[in-house]
Amino acid sequence: MRVSVVTFPGSNCDQDAVWAFGEILGVDVTPVWHKSHDLANPDLVFIPGGFSFGDYLRSGAIARFSPIMNEVAQHYRKGGYVMGICNGFQILCEMGILPGCLMKNRDLAFLCQDVYVRCESSKSPLTYGLSTGTVLNIPIAHGMGRYVADDDTLRSLEDHQQVVFRYTTASGELTEEANPNGSLNAIAGICDESGRALGMMPHPERHVESALGSDDGLQVLGGLIEYLEYAAT
């Protein structure tokens, strides 16, 4: 089981991800610099959060043209798995692997807080082991997290169970207050049609030990590793 974590200038939580996969989950993890052409033959590519290239032009707009992203696109096209967190989600949208776009938060403020998300679908194997309706406590840290897509795209996402996480209250209710950034349909994470690409704004790699406040993030990362190990056998 191999995970590659891509780092861009301005990435953050890449080392948290390396820690979560390597130390907590005991997976073979390789940090990969964005200028590299060698993805290290992973089962999963993890694109971390942060502010790649200073979020210049649009979040993720420059990062998608980094040399390593050709390899990431090829890995995905060949049937590989890709997970984008926060800025990684924005990059997957800019690449066109995921539909829609992440825009400035409704209230314009940068939000750094714990939120609750509800698992909405078992479409993506990357949420293996998470049953629909499960509520997780996972932190967000973003200024550009408001998910936007046109009506047809939204309808198609809903119809095909591609909405993987929605912002809810701790008890799993959809309320306007529980949606921190004004995302359409309270969307916190989506997958592509195949389920092999998953993007989400909350940071599961930040909540992998109770000493960090919660280990709910392990339910996401641990589940996907369990699936990939199972798929590899």
Binding site: L57, A61, F65, E94, G100, C101, V148, D150
Partner: peptide, 8 residues
């Protein structure tokens, strides 16, 4: 390709 995002 780069300067605008046709989605938005």
């Amino acid at each position: 390709k780069l300067l605008a995002n046709p989605v938005i």
